[in-house]
């Protein structure tokens, strides 16, 4: 039971990260493989503010999110928009953006290594236990989960209720038709990309309260976020959340029952099973 709850707590934070990637891929059509580095950068900020000024990571979010938004908006406008423009086919944009964001990811790792060195970084924040149903859970994990729930909730409301959110979903479903009804696809794609980056960086700040990060862990999170997005279905908020919780639980199960070194192997096995049996995602309609 406690494994299940710990898994859910972890999955909540994963949901946030995957949601960021899903916005970027679903709306902006960019498979951002530098997503994990954005997460680590968010974590770095939280770490730095906490160790330098004892600023709570939950307050740091207010700085991290707008910073990440601006940085990702710039990345989209400067680096990715030219690729969108020159791509003749979806496939070409796909491989171009994969290579470009891989490049970005390595540059980011290289820069972080140069600035912070290769050390692990962690800090102790809210690391006292809370007791629930006779079991202990780290308060930081619970707090991060609550933060993730709040942000996911806001994002869900925004996507479903606001005009801009509706336009985003329209683009995700049918980019060509969205253009016809007067939605500025280019502009919104940039915003979606920026927003996705901000959400991921926020996730990084939250996750740094209970996980140890280092400059090169980003790719692990990218891989997990990708797996979640594909499991949940591209552009599907509900699917993303369910897939993230599922991954959190499966990982925690494997880590506590078999070996903590096998978490990525577990995530990957889950991914293979999904690919083989439900390539359209958990809730996706079968494309015929």
């Amino acid at each position: 039971m406690d494994i299940f709850l710990t898994g859910l707590l972890l999955g909540g934070t994963y949901a946030l990260i995957a949601m960021g990637l899903n916005l970027q891929y679903g709306v902006a059509r960019i498979m951002n493989l530098a997503n994990g580095e954005m997460l680590v950068a968010g974590g770095f900020c939280a770490f730095w503010f906490y160790t330098a000024g004892q600023v709570s990571p939950f307050l740091t979010v207010a700085i991290v999110a707008p910073l990440a938004f601006a940085a990702n908006w710039l990345i989209y406008q400067v680096m990715l928009r030219p690729l969108v423009k020159r791509a003749k086919t979806r496939g070409q944009l796909e491989s171009d953006s994969i290579l470009a964001t891989f490049g970005l990811s390595f540059v980011a790792v290289g820069l972080m290594l140069a600035v912070f060195g290769g050390d692990y970084f962690n800090y102790s924040y809210l690391s006292r236990p809370v007791t629930f149903a006779g079991e202990n859970y780290g308060l930081n994990r619970v707090a991060a989960f609550c933060g993730a729930v709040v942000i996911c909730g806001l994002l869900y409301l925004w996507l479903n209720q606001s005009r801009a959110g509706l336009s985003m979903r329209a683009i995700a479903t049918a980019p060509a038709s969205a253009r016809l009804v007067g939605i500025s696809v280019g502009h919104l794609a940039a915003i979606a990309f920026a927003l996705g980056g901000a959400v991921t960086a926020t996730g990084g700040a939250l996750i740094s309260t209970f996980l140890t990060l280092d400059a090169s862990t980003g790719v692990m999170f990218t891989l997990k976020a990708l797996i979640i997005v594909i499991m949940g279905g591209v552009g599907d908020v509900r699917g993303t959340i369910v897939a993230a919780l599922l991954l959190g639980v499966v990982e925690t199960l494997v880590a506590s029952l078999i070996d903590p070194g096998l978490t990525l192997a577990a995530a990957y096995t889950l991914f293979i099973l999904i690919l083989l049996f439900r390539p359209q995602g958990l809730f996706g309609r079968r494309q015929t």
Binding site: F102, G103, S105, F106, V109, G110, A114, G118
Partner: peptide, 17 residues
């Protein structure tokens, strides 16, 4: 030795752009 990551990254960007 610490800058190999940067080299990989820059190479990818050179290829694309």
């Amino acid at each position: 030795p610490n800058q190999t990551m940067l080299l990989l990254g820059v190479s990818f960007l050179v290829i694309v752009y």
